[in-house]
Amino acid sequence: MTSYHDNIAPEIRARQQWMYTLAHADIADLMPFETQLKAGPYQLIRPPETGMALVRGRMGATGAPFNLGEMTVTRCVVKNDEACVGYSYIAGRDKTHAELAALADAHLQGARRHAWVCRMVELLDARRQSRRAEAAAACAGTRVDFFTLLRGEDDAA
């Protein structure tokens, strides 16, 4: 069975991956790269702006879509000196984060892509994963397992 993800070109998948990492990065981890990201001249095609986006979902990922609610989103588009256009969509209202993420996306499409991946994306990804692991460990300490004799999902089997 082929899923949606199997049909995506590898370069698009790579870009989705780094945009995800940049959007999820902690601003404190991103700030050390600010001077490098802003080193060359760049143009704000769409200055950082904050708005609302409607989040929709499907029950169990299959049912009819319903409106889950609205979330605050900040977006930004920049064009760097290599004429690469970088986009970012960030949860929350941090305009600095949105601008840095868009700049990073622009640089990552340019000639020095590999250097940026090694220097920045991999580090940000490692930080994100360690933060996740810490949170998971903290939660695991208070975890309660419920044992029941009969569970709904067994009926389907």
């Binding site: 143009q43 704000l44 095609i45 200055p47 588009v77 064009k79 256009v85």
Partner: peptide
Amino acid sequence: LEAGFGDP
């Protein structure tokens, strides 16, 4: 793409 309004 080119820049639109500076302060939309």
